[in-house]
Design a protein around this nucleic acid. Structure first.
Lengths: 182, 182
DNA sequence: CACTGATCTGACCGATCGGTCAGCTGCTGA
DNA sequence: TCAGCAGCTGACCGATCGGTCAGATCAGTG
C-alpha cells in the first residue's frame, strides 16, 4: 500500500462522501469508509483526527459560501433587498452544493447540535429571518421555515435534473411562495 | 412495582413519545425509556416485542389517517380535484399529528426503509403526484417535493402556534406555491 | 395452604461503534 | 549501511446498543 499523504487523504474524503450519500453520516462507520478505500480503519484515523473531522472537511467549501451569503444579507438595510439576496443566494448555494447537502439528508437537526457546526444554527436563523422579510408574523416565519427545510431536503433528490433547471424551479417556488413585502 | 398491563403499556408509550421528541427515535435507547417510566429495560421489552413496535403503535393513528387520505385522493379522477383534496388533507394531517411527526424529525428517510413503514413510501409518492397535479414536469415535482418535505419538518417546530393559525399558514403556503393546474 | 400465571428484574449476550496503541514496512538522506 | 520517519496495520479497549433468559415477586384462586 503506502501511498502519499495527499493521495490517501483525498481517497478517504471521496469514499466518505460516497458512503455518507448512501447511508448518511451516522449510518456510515469508519470501517465502511476504510473498506471502500481499501485500507484499515486505523489508517483513516491516521489521516483524520476523528470521524467528525472528515465531515467538517467535506462540508468546508459549502459552509464558507454560506458564511459569505450571511454577510451579504446582513449588509442589506431594506427587508425587501435582504429577502432578494437571501432567495438568490440560498438557491445558488443549494444547487451548487446539492451533493454535499444530500450527504446530510435528514441529519441536519442532530449535526447542528455538534460544537463544530454550532454557528451554522445562527446563520440559518438569520437566513430564515431574511426569507421572511424580517417579519415577525407567524405565517411568514412558518412559510420561510418550510421552504428552507424543504429545499434543503429536496436538492439532493433530483440528481438527474440539470443545475439550471433545478435553479429555475427553486427560484420560481421561493418567489411565488414567500409573502410579498408590504 | 407491578402495575396493570394497560397502565404500564400506556406509560411506556407516553415516555417513549416524550423521549423520541427530544432525542429522536435512533437517539433514544430502550434504557432511556425504561428510566423515564421507572422500570427496567426488560420490562419495556415485556410489553413490546421490540423497539420498533413502540414506534409503530405510536404512529398508528397518524398512519391510519394518511391511508384514508390516500384513498380519498385516488378516488378523484381530475388532477385539479385530486390536488385540492391532497392539499387540504395533508395540511389537516400535518397539523393534527404534528406532535407525532415531530418525533421523527429528520428520521423519515431511514424509517421509511424499514419494512413496517414500506407502504408509507408508496403513499408518499402518490401524495406527491397529487400535489404536483399529476404533472410530469420537473418543476412541478420539485416544488411538490420541497413543500411536502418542508411541511413535515416544519409542523413540529411551531408548537406554540395554535392549530388554526398553523393550518391557515400552511394552506396559504401550499395554494400559493403549487403551480396552478392548466 | 399450595399452586398458577402475569409482571418484572438483574445479569448477561453478541454485535457494533469510535478510538488507541505498539509495532511493522519501505523509502530517504546522511 | 543504517538511523529515522511517514504510512499503515492488527489487535485491542471501553462504551453502548437491542435483545434474551432464568428466576424473583405477588395477586388471585381452589
Amino acid at each position: 500500500m503506502a501511498r502519499t499523504t495527499p493521495q490517501t487523504h483525498g481517497e478517504i474524503l471521496a469514499a466518505a462522501a460516497r458512503r455518507f450519500g448512501v447511508t448518511g453520516y451516522r449510518g456510515t462507520s469508519l470501517q465502511d469508509i476504510a473498506g471502500e478505500v481499501g485500507c484499515s480503519k486505523a489508517a483513516v484515523l491516521y489521516h483524520f483526527a476523528n470521524k467528525e473531522a472528515i465531515l467538517t472537511e467535506l462540508m468546508a467549501p459549502a459552509i464558507e459560501v454560506l458564511r459569505s451569503l450571511d454577510e451579504r444579507i446582513a449588509a442589506q438595510s431594506e427587508p425587501a433587498s435582504a429577502q432578494r439576496v437571501a432567495i438568490e443566494g440560498f438557491v445558488d448555494l443549494a444547487v451548487r452544493f446539492r451533493g454535499e447537502i444530500a450527504l446530510l439528508r435528514g441529519e441536519f437537526p442532530e449535526l447542528l447540535q455538534q460544537p463544530d457546526f454550532a454557528h451554522i444554527q445562527l446563520i440559518s436563523e438569520r437566513l430564515l429571518d431574511a426569507l421572511a422579510a424580517r417579519s415577525a408574523r407567524a405565517s411568514a416565519r412558518i412559510a420561510a421555515f418550510a421552504l428552507l427545510a424543504g429545499i434543503a431536503e429536496t436538492c439532493g433528490e433530483f440528481a438527474d435534473v440539470p443545475d439550471e433547471e433545478l435553479r429555475e424551479a427553486l427560484l420560481t417556488l421561493l418567489r411565488r411562495a414567500l409573502e410579498p413585502v408590504n
